[in-house]
């Protein structure tokens, strides 16, 4: 068992850095908190300094920032229309946060905040909470039309409504688990293959030669993880946009 030498789970351990117990709860500043702070600082400094000059003809960094901005803006506009643009700061923040956290997690020895279900679940609940609160505030009870698609025969209605409700309830779950599982599984797989390299390498010359295979696999997996890190941030943002669209235009 690889766990003897290389524990693939070890990377997900949360270590307290500064102990802050408040009223029986542990609000310690941990490595998870540290990397959240680092991710936010990184994203914020990048966005702040790349756009500081506000040049008419953008520099490389500025066009990167502008590209992400335009990317998220068009994503939101396509999904939720111009009315959805009032959620733009939120979606942009969400995208940048998840993206930076995912990418930061790719570095060896770095902690991946998004590989913890509570983080992704909190973000997903934030999204769904905003959808529900905005939906009811904007449309009142007409928001419930979301669960009653038009043009369905009356006989099928209870079934369809039940399906719609279940699909709505499973949204935060699938949204959070998708991101969490991708990050977790990817990092574990990477670690397992890296563990193979180490344990094969310890077996002498033949093992060294054999270790090339898992090493190549680890390299390929790193590339895949880079893709997944960006893609999952994108998927998270796109689904957020779609859910926000439901809050803005409930009758579909």
């Amino acid at each position: 068992m690889a766990a003897d030498k290389v524990d693939p789970i070890h990377q997900f351990h949360i270590n307290t850095i500064v102990d802050i117990p408040v009223g029986g709860y542990d609000f310690s500043f941990t490595n998870s908190s540290l990397f959240m702070v680092v991710a936010v600082l990184l994203a914020a400094t990048f966005l702040y300094f790349s756009t500081a000059k506000g040049a008419l003809v953008p520099s490389r960094a500025q066009s990167m920032a502008e590209l992400t901005y335009e990317f998220v803006a068009s994503m939101l506009r396509d999904a939720a229309g111009n009315q959805g643009m009032k959620f733009f700061p939120f979606v942009f923040t969400l995208f940048m946060f998840v993206l930076t956290a995912n990418l930061l997690g790719l570095f060896p020895y770095f902690f991946t905040t998004t590989s913890h279900i509570i983080i992704t679940f909190a973000l997903a609940m934030l999204v769904i909470g905003i959808v529900i609160i905005y939906g009811f505030a904007k449309h009142g009870l007409r928001f419930l039309k979301l669960f009653v698609p038009s043009g369905v025969p009356l006989v099928l209605m209870p079934l369809v409504v039940a399906i719609e409700v279940v699909s709505f309830v499973s949204r935060p779950v699938s949204l959070s688990v998708r991101l969490f599982a991708n990050m977790l599984a990817g990092h574990i797989t990477l670690k397992v293959f890296a563990g193979f390299v180490v344990s094969l390498g310890a077996m002498g010359a033949a093992g060294m030669a054999g270790a090339v295979l898992p090493l190549a696999m680890a390299v390929a997996l790193s590339a895949l993880e880079l893709l997944v890190a960006v893609l999952q941030a994108y998927v998270f943002a796109v689904l957020t946009c779609m859910y926000l669209n439901d809050a803005i235009h409930p009758s579909h």
Binding site: T30, S32, V37, A39, T93, T113, L123
Partner: peptide, 11 residues
């Protein structure tokens, strides 16, 4: 609790 708190703060 710690993760939620720091997520809330940073986010």
């Amino acid at each position: 609790p710690s993760q939620l708190l720091w997520l809330a703060i940073t986010f």
